[in-house]
Amino acid sequence: MAVKKRTKDLTFWQKIYLPEIAKGLALTFKNMVKPKYTIEYPEDKFIPPPSYRGRPVLVMEADGEERCVACGLCARVCPPLAIEVQASETEKEKERYPVKFEINMLRCIFCGFCEEVCPEEAIVMSKDYELAFTSREEAIYGKDKLLTPIDQLNDRIEFLRKYK
């Protein structure tokens, strides 16, 4: 059997092992007194940066109207088919609006394609990551849960205008 030759041999002090142990101990001690990275979750919450893709929401204008014109592009592009839109006509300038807009949060994969494809900037990803349901029916979010006032979504919209 060929004996593999070491390229670098240990020095005498490394062979004694004690100085190396002291070095290791110093390193762990340094880490013991360092500030901790833990966020104590239910009390302190993680506030994501604008680039974060949380639960998709519909933008609600200041007058309480949704921006959505029910073109159905988001439903078309959605890879897991989580979005369902039913359009209807309205007297207003935008002419169309969604009667029904549902996202099945059990299907949603948070890819952000709906937001990317939307021509009206009407559906955006929010910072909400706390999603828990007790039944499957509860996981289907209708317009009542999806509509979010625009002033809560400003930094995401700004981010989209900058980088999209």
């Binding site: 762990t28 880490n31 013991m32 007194v33 360092k34 901790k36 990275y37 833990t38 104590e40």
Partner: peptide, 13 residues
Amino acid sequence: KISAWAQNRIGPN
């Protein structure tokens, strides 16, 4: 606690 501190965690609290 010490294991947590050495790993930059808080430990049982």
